[in-house]
Each structure stands twice: as structure tokens, then as C-alpha cells.
Design a protein around this nucleic acid. Structure first.
Lengths: 332, 332
DNA sequence: TTGTACGCGTTATCAT
DNA sequence: ATGATAACGCGTACAA
């Protein structure tokens, strides 16, 4: 491993000059600068990230913190999101250090310890819920942070997502315009803020049309395919008047689809089913799901971009919505 | 940020003693050891990973190098694999630093530079192909390394996968036993070593039955759903005698499935289609795919385990196969 | 058993 | 423009 010391020796200058040349300081003669750069290339010099981080008290590493991921996930969201962050990180010469929050195994290490031990430049969080213990930690933390799909009430913390409320309204307006008058809502985990936003979008369109929300039209699927299936098995037989179901996630929509098929309810003829997320499965199930497309890769890219601005102290809004799109397929 | 210096001050000992106590050195009085540990807890001390790595010339970080991943991947393999590595890493207090090899954008940084800059303890590689430029680098590299799904001809480099040859034979024997006599093979990317192994498994069962392999029964789908679709569209109409198709990947099998459906070929009645990998989609398509299940999470966990042993100089075989399973669904 | 002192590779401050 | 030198936090060889 060759260091600036070696270069300094060969170039017959001090290590300080080498450091300056390498970091593009103006206080170096163009001549010696070139000579040092040339030498660095010849010797295949690469700076030691540890040493640099140690003295600068900050590494060029983003922490990527993901919560609630288990093996056998039924979507590629984490993968896509990670790639988005990675793409931006690499464009600025940063790396990604992983941290998985396991609510069951309860990590011994907190995300704060994680960030400090590695002098992370900042962290990006994905999949967190408002009831996560980590969520609170962020508030008193001084570490730059951007949340994906979770609003940040604190000004120091950034946040990027789609406009879930508006997206839910788009879905509902689409259904209303297609003539549906009795629309049920399949809700997700209450502690996920997106659930609330999508639900409020549902309610607002109901209100707009002068329709009272009926509490037994609100189902709970817990963002799980199985729970959704069970909920629909119990609900559909008693409610033939329902012609449309808006699900807060594709996975739940897929569970609902199965329940409908088993009960002999034709989708979309007797029941329109709309999902949310546009996960990979959405276009492969039968019938293909009409759903709201979220570009997690883009979302995460923007999150990384925002994080970098925050770190560098550049002006940036601390909240950003990226576009979503209603994808109309055959389920409704 | 509190350091051993702070603890030393409060405990009225030298930093050397603190360091020893923290690292479980025997040369510390139990009394002072306890006092220091207690103090460390009180002060919420956490070691600075950078400083430690700098002096030890090795960090407690695994590099996770993944190649050929693009946004919108149609499987969760990377995600699952990453979680497997992560699980083991956390169990020994290690972290994961990401590195994505992008064959198109051709990274400026090599994986070796990446590893050295961060003094990585070792690296795990997934998705590499034998024609990858990185593959050669591994040979002269001194960095501990374990490959997933890619055999290592070098003794210093570890490797873990399933027995692809045996798995292919299992599939073929299953088909033969069900009475199939004319079986086509849909091959993947030639540079992926798994392709070759699966193909050889196919050939060996053919030979075992005294059947000559026919070159026009070997199709090429390039591990792509679209290419597989195109290949089958051209192949099926001219070969009604074919009753079974063994695909080197599920994604290609799904493409084949679509081609068959569009051509009015009933699966599995007229054509049995077998996949490989058991990706998430396999159980969601119609008909659900019969395929070989690979536990990528487990594979990666074992890879991390092997890597750690190599790093620690513990005895370990440098090659390991984990179990696979033929999952019989409805496609064949 | 404990303390002193050095070195890891780098950046940064102060002279020159 | 350049050089000497002090940090950064930690591990460890050597001395006591």
C-alpha cells in the first residue's frame, strides 16, 4: 500500500505538498502539481479512506438504513431503492454502508451508534414507521438524514416520497368516473404514515361526492397478502353492493384478488380492484393490476441528492415529492 | 464523541489500560477492568471504527460486490443474497459496504481499489461472470474473497453455490421419468458458469439414456425473458415433437410460457416447461412453474461464514454446495 | 499489572 | 509556494 509519504519521497517534496496537490489546492506550482499527479498515477496511489475520515471526522459514506425487511420479500423495493441511492452516491464518490433494522431481533446497536462509529456523512432511511424506536432518535441526532416515504416534522431531517394523498385521490376519482358508487378501502399498517395519507385521500373523494364513509367498508390487511385475503373472504359475501376495492398496497390487492376468485366474484366485471406501488407482481398476476406506480429508484436517488445538499450546507427544500402515475391494467 | 482518552481520565488510568480492558486483554485486574467497562457504558462510549481500522490495517467491513444488476430487476435475488450476508456479518459485528459493478458504465474504480481504500476485511461477490474484468483481478489480489455461484479455480478464493450439474440432472431425470423423450434446453448466458453446468447436466442424462443431443434442440435465451420468448416463437411451430423444455432460468421459462400460450400450445399438456431458480414470479405465473429452488439467502450466509473463516485463518473447505430442491408445480 | 510512547495515513495550521 | 508538525483515536511494543 503506497501512501503520500512514498510519493513525497520520490517527488522530493513534503507530504504536505503532496496532499495539497492531490486535493487540488491552488497553492501548488502547476509544475510540481503535475509531477505529483503523474507520480501518483504511476505508483497506483489510492488514498486511505480511514485516515482521511479520522482527521476530517467524517467519512464519505452514506448509511443506508432499511427497516422491516425480511427474507423472501415479495417485491424488489429495497433493491430498487438501494440502487437509486447507490447511483447518486457513486456519482459523488461516496459509498453505501448497510444497516438493517430488525424489529424482532432488536438490534443491540442503535442506528446512532452505527452512524457515529463509522463517522457517516449522513443516513438514508427506508421502510421506517412512525412507531419505530429509531424514528425518535433522529430528532436529537445531529446526523444529516433523509427519510424515504416518511414525513419529517423536524426541519433538519429531509424527506422524499410521492404525494400519497393526491395519488389516492387520483385512484378514487378514476373509480368514481367509471361509475362506482360503493367503494371499499383496504388499509395497511396504521403506523405507516403512507397508510394514513392514502386513507385520507380516499375519504376526501368520498366527501367531495357527498357520500358518508361507512366504517364497515374500511378493511384492514396489514400490508399482508394473507391478511388481505382473510379480510376479503369475510367481507365480500356480505357486501354484494360493493363494486370497487381500493387497496393501499399491491400485495394486499393480490390477496384480495385470490379471495375474489375463490368466491366466484369476477374481477373487474363484478369487482374492480386497484392496488398501490406497482410492484413487479402487479403486472404478472391475473388479471394484471391497475395500480399507482411509484419509482422507488428515483425516489431514493433524490433522497441521496437531498442528503448531500444538506451535508454540504447547500440550500434545499427538506421535503420533496416525485411524480407518480396511475397504471391502468385489467383489474379495474 | 467520547474516546478512550476520556475514559482513561475519569478512571485515572492510562489509555493503554482502557484499550486493554475494552479488548478483553488478560493483563488487566478484574477490578479495574470492571470499573472501565462500567465507565464506558455510563459515558456511552463507542469505538471509532476508522481509528481502529487505521492502526490494524483492516476494518471490520465486508465488501459486497454485485455485478450486472439493473433497476427493475425481475427477481429478489440480490436482496435475498444481501440479507444472507448481512445476517452473518452482524452476528460477528461486521458491516457491509456495497459495490456495484456496472459493465456498461465501466466503473472508474476497480474493486481492488475499493477494497484497499476501505481496508476491507474481505469481499463477497455475487452475479459475476467469467468474462468480467474483475474476475481476473481476484487472482493476484491478496484480499480474502468468496464467490457466489461462480467456481473459483484458485485455492485462496472461496466459492459457494448449489450443485448445478446435479440439479440439472434431477430436472432431467424427473422429465424422463414422466415419459418425455424429446426434451429441448433453453440456455442462458454462456459466460455464466452456471449455464455450462446446467447444460452439462442436461447432456449427461441424455447420454445416460442413449439419446443423441440434437443441436437445434439447444435454444439460447440469454437469461432474458424477451430473448426466450423470441426463441420459442421461432422454435415451437417447427418442432411439435418436443414435449418438454428445460430452461436454465425461471425468467426465460416465463418468456417461454408466454410464447407457448400465444401459439396455442398447452402447458403442461402439450409441453412441459421447467425453470430454474424459483424466483418469486415462478409461483405467481399461470401455470405456476415447476423449478429448482435455490436459497440465495442461505448461500450468501454460508459465503459470509466461509469468508470469515478464511480471514481468521481457520481451516475451511474453499468450496461449498448447499442443498437445492425440485419444486413441482403445474407447468411440468 | 500498568504506563509511556510510537505509528497508522491523512488533513490542517503555522511558519518560512 | 512549500515544509515541519500537530492532531485524529486507537492498538501495542517496550519499559517500569
Amino acid at each position: 500500500m503506497i501512501s503520500i509519504k512514498d510519493i513525497a519521497l520520490k517527488a522530493d517534496v513534503s507530504i504536505a505538498t503532496v496532499s495539497r496537490a492531490l486535493n487540488g489546492s491552488p497553492n501548488v506550482t502547476p509544475h510540481t502539481r503535475d509531477r505529483i499527479l503523474q507520480l501518483a498515477k504511476e505508483l497506483d496511489y489510492h488514498p486511505n479512506a480511514m485516515a482521511r475520515s479520522l482527521v476530517q471526522k467524517s467519512s464519505r459514506i452514506f448509511g443506508y438504513i432499511v427497516s422491516g425487511i425480511k427474507k423472501g420479500a415479495k417485491h424488489t423495493i429495497v433493491q430498487d431503492s438501494l440502487m437509486g441511492v447507490y447511483d447518486y452516491a457513486r456519482s459523488i464518490g461516496y459509498e453505501i454502508l448497510m444497516f438493517v433494522v430488525d424489529s424482532e431481533k432488536q438490534n443491540t446497536k442503535s442506528y446512532l451508534d452505527f452512524a457515529r462509529e463509522h463517522s457517516l456523512a449522513g443516513v438514508i432511511m427506508q421502510g421506517l414507521r412512525t412507531d419505530d424506536a429509531y424514528y425518535k432518535d433522529i430528532i436529537d441526532s445531529q446526523i444529516p438524514c433523509v427519510l424515504i416515504d416518511l414525513p419529517a416534522d423536524c426541519t433538519r431531517v429531509g424527506s422524499v416520497s410521492i404525494d400519497n394523498h393526491a395519488a389516492a385521490r387520483t385512484v378514487m376519482q378514476y373509480l368514481v368516473q367509471k361509475g362506482h358508487r360503493h367503494i371499499a378501502f383496504l388499509s395497511g399498517v396504521d403506523e405507516a404514515s403512507v397508510t394514513t395519507l392514502r386513507f385520507q385521500g380516499y375519504l376526501s373523494v368520498l366527501a367531495e361526492n357527498g357520500w358518508e364513509p361507512k366504517s364497515d367498508y374500511i378493511l384492514h390487511g396489514n400490508f399482508s397478502e394473507e391478511d388481505a385475503y382473510a379480510a376479503l373472504r369475510g367481507f365480500l359475501p356480505d357486501h354484494p353492493e360493493i363494486t370497487a376495492l381500493f387497496c393501499a398496497s399491491d400485495l394486499m390487492a393480490i390477496g384480495a384478488l385470490r379471495a375474489a376468485r375463490e368466491l366466484g366474484v369476477k374481477v373487474p366485471q363484478q369487482l374492480a380492484i386497484i392496488g398501490f406501488d406497482d410492484i413487479l407482481l402487479a403486472s404478472y398476476v391475473d388479471p394484471p393490476l391497475t395500480t399507482v406506480h411509484q419509482d422507488f429508484s428515483r425516489m431514493s436517488y433524490e433522497a441521496a441528492k437531498m442528503l448531500y445538499k444538506i451535508i454540504k450546507g447547500q440550500a434545499t427544500p427538506h421535503s420533496k415529492n416525485i411524480p407518480y402515475e396511475l397504471i391502468i391494467r385489467q383489474s379495474g
